[in-house]
Amino acid sequence: MAGRGSRGRAERRSAGALESEVLAALWATERPLTPAEIQHGIGGGLAYNTVHTILKRLYDKGLVLRDADGRRGAYRPAKNAAELTAEAMHEALDRGPDPIAALQQFVTGLSAEEERALRELLAGDGA
């Protein structure tokens, strides 16, 4: 998976959007990440200090934790709140006719033929 995070012409990202990206990066991996690793991972020319500030804000909200037994300065996402959210989501889905199917899903289902075409696309891009 090529991390082509920084692609010059991207729009300037707001503080809220950056917060989402850092949180998403922490959730995307099993191991805790240091600010330097996050800075490298999400790209877009973010200053180290900016990443640090964002992490502190996420920590204050209880969305990320400092990794106690791992490396110094590494962070991991707080699982408890996310598990509660998952429960609430399943509850909403189980409640009769799927209310979330009525929403815009990022993607919907695939046929076998489509699946093959998409695999070829990803392989062709060398990503």
């Binding site: 917060e19 998403a24 909200k61 969305l63 598990e83 989501m89």
Partner: peptide
């Protein structure tokens, strides 16, 4: 929490 855009569900 207020002011967060992304909600993650485990």
């Amino acid at each position: 929490p207020a002011g967060t855009e992304l909600i993650v569900a485990a």
